[in-house]
């Protein structure tokens, strides 16, 4: 059975990953729709900027977060003055780091599924009197559900594995920001920490397997549902 410290790291990892996925889902759908369906000046630029986390090392993202959202960064000062929030050394900061690193993965999946939707179906809904929002919710959203789900799984997996941005931005505080990968790294740094590291490896792999098998099962259900099966 996992020790209290391991349980703590496990639950923290799950909390960080779940919040990072849930928090990035609405903007990901909105931006994916914008990028797939509209053309505006700066379209390519926005697309490029949102993909930066995919192509730069996570440590760079962590450093940028420290510079912009840290206590002395413009974003950090704003959050502190307006909402009284500080992100440094908190699990919320870890969730933001994970969300940013995983965002392009979710965005890509959703955008591509929106591009795959036959627009005539939406137009048909409109001619039958549905408002644009209504058409989106009742026609587009069910059609892109598998893509949205794939994006969520991908970004959840990426969040669970986040290391570089997290340790750089919010360091490695047990119970607050020390997620499974950070706990594993810390254990591997101690002389004689191999046994501890091995246990954490087993926990990580178990968690990943449960998540993968669960997502396969859910995906089959979603696909079945959205292809109009009985």
């Amino acid at each position: 059975m996992p020790t209290p410290a391991e349980t703590e790291a496990l639950l923290l990892s799950l909390r960080v990953a779940v919040w990072s996925v849930l928090g990035s889902l609405p903007p990901a759908i909105a931006i994916a729709w914008l990028l797939a369906r509209t053309r505006f000046p700066g379209h390519a630029l926005l697309n490029g900027i949102l993909h930066i986390p995919l192509v730069v090392p996570p440590v760079v993202i962590g450093y940028l977060l420290l510079v912009f959202l840290g206590r002395r960064g413009p974003g950090g000062v704003f959050l502190e003055n307006v909402f009284g929030i500080t992100l440094g050394f908190t699990w919320q900061g870890a969730a933001i780091a994970s969300a940013i690193v995983a965002f392009p993965l979710m965005l890509r999946a959703i955008r591509q599924s929106i591009e795959g939707v036959d627009r005539r179906l939406e137009q048909a809904a409109r001619t039958l009197g549905a408002s644009p929002a209504n058409a989106f919710c009742t026609v587009t959203l069910p059609l892109i559900a598998p893509g949205v789900f794939a994006g969520m799984v991908l970004s959840f997996a990426r969040s669970l594995g986040e290391f570089g941005a997290t340790i750089t931005f919010v360091s490695s505080i047990p119970g607050e920001t020390r997620t499974l990968p950070l706990a594993l790294y810390a254990a591997a740094q101690v002389p004689g920490g191999e046994a501890q590291a091995t246990r954490l490896v087993v926990i990580s792999i178990t968690l990943a397997m449960i998540a993968l098998i669960g997502s396969e099962w859910l995906a089959r259900r979603t696909r079945h549902y959205s292809s109009g099966g009985p």
Partner: peptide
């Protein structure tokens, strides 16, 4: 894991009817 997941996405991206025909296109981004 990244490899597997990018293929999962590739599979899901396809429209349902493509899936039923089991015609698997290799999409650009994976």
């Amino acid at each position: 894991m990244q490899y597997i997941l990018s293929y999962i996405i590739a599979a899901w991206r396809q429209r349902p009817e493509v899936h039923r025909n089991r015609a698997v296109r290799i999409s650009r981004w994976p």
